[in-house]
Computed example of a mutant assay.
Amino acid sequence: MSTGGSTRAASRTSAGQAPAPRSAAPSRAAGLVVALVVLVAIALLSIAVGARSIPLGTVVDALFHRDGSDSSYVVWSIRVPRTLIGIAVGASLGVAGALMQALTRNPLADPGLLGINAGAATAAALSVGVLGVTDLRAFVWFAFLGAAIAGFVLYVIAGRGGSSPVRLALAGTAVSAALTGLTQAMTLLDTQTLDQMRFWTVGSLERADGGTLVRVLPFLVAGVLLALFLARPLNALALGDEAGKSLGAHLGRTRGLTLLAVTLLAGAATAAVGPLVFVGLAVPHMVRAITGPDQRWVLPYCALLAPALLLLADVLGRVIAKEEIDVGVVTALLGAPLFIALVRRTKVARS
């Protein structure tokens, strides 16, 4: 082997990026197949379970034969759109959470850390309080626009691409606090805004429909594709700025594109169903326990397991009480103990 090749191999090995054993890739690929099967099973459960329980056999038959029956109507008009929006939003939040933790090198980061959720909420409140918007179809566009503006403001404040993970996280916290205060002021001073916002801010799949999915899906797909493209440079940045540069990663470009991907994913997901907490925080941790830190595997696993978790929480919200509980409440109840455990056991990156 040439001297240059030996040096590069040694650098990768010393940095913790040594090639995985040959058996690792097939096992991870098999794990992806298992994750896909789990997601499909929970999706079928989501379609079958509700205020009106439908036998699984009837659900499968209705999926392949739309016969105009009551069961077919419930499946296709209510539960399939709800399940599809859950899959799209869950995948987006899971991938956005993994990107956030890689970008800031903070294992406790989630999509809300950058102020994206707060930007969506502020724009939504403005659209209701100032423009009198009541149509959910228009509401979604305003919320996504607010998320995009918040992402741009953060990009400017933190410096081009974010000068460091710490500065990026601090700027995101400041933007989020300012926007949250503005939103709360508007909702307290305007009862109409409060009435419209209180349902959206809880986070729910129930009020989203097929039209909502169509509106946000292009942004979600673009965000996922961009995230997969960024997997290799994010692996390099995980070693530190200097090591990342030596491996050929462009720091500013990688951080800027990652911020764009998080804005597309978290912004569109929040606009569609409201802010959902802990999905983007919890799933990347579970995934890394299976795959290790390699983003080339972390991101696809998150795209499958995060929607499975979100749909499962949605199903639990339908059955644990007489009245349906919004999925945002269920994810908060499940995620809070996990977050406390992570805070107690994890050392947050400081540089």
Rank of each mutant, 00 (worst) to 15 (best):
T191A: 14
G335Y: 11
V59K: 07
D67H: 05
A121V: 11
T201Q: 14
I116W: 10
V89E: 10
L45M: 15
M197G: 02
L168M: 11
R350H: 14
L311P: 01
Y155G: 07
G86V: 08
L145S: 15
L63R: 08
A51S: 15
V202L: 12
L333D: 10
G115E: 09
F152H: 02
A208Q: 12
L226W: 09
L237A: 01
A271D: 03
G151E: 04
D294K: 01
L265F: 08
G4H: 11
L342R: 05
D67A: 04
L217S: 14
S71T: 12
L259F: 01
L281A: 01
A18M: 03
T193W: 08
I290Q: 01
A15H: 12
V214R: 12
M100W: 09
T13V: 12
S204K: 02
A18R: 05
A150V: 08
V37Y: 01
V74W: 00
I157L: 15
S351P: 00
R82F: 13
L228A: 13
L217R: 06
F144P: 13
A341M: 12
K322A: 15
R207I: 11
L126P: 03
V130D: 06
R215V: 14
L32P: 06
P19W: 00
L36W: 09
D294F: 07
Q295R: 12
P21H: 09
V156E: 05
A266Y: 02
V224A: 10
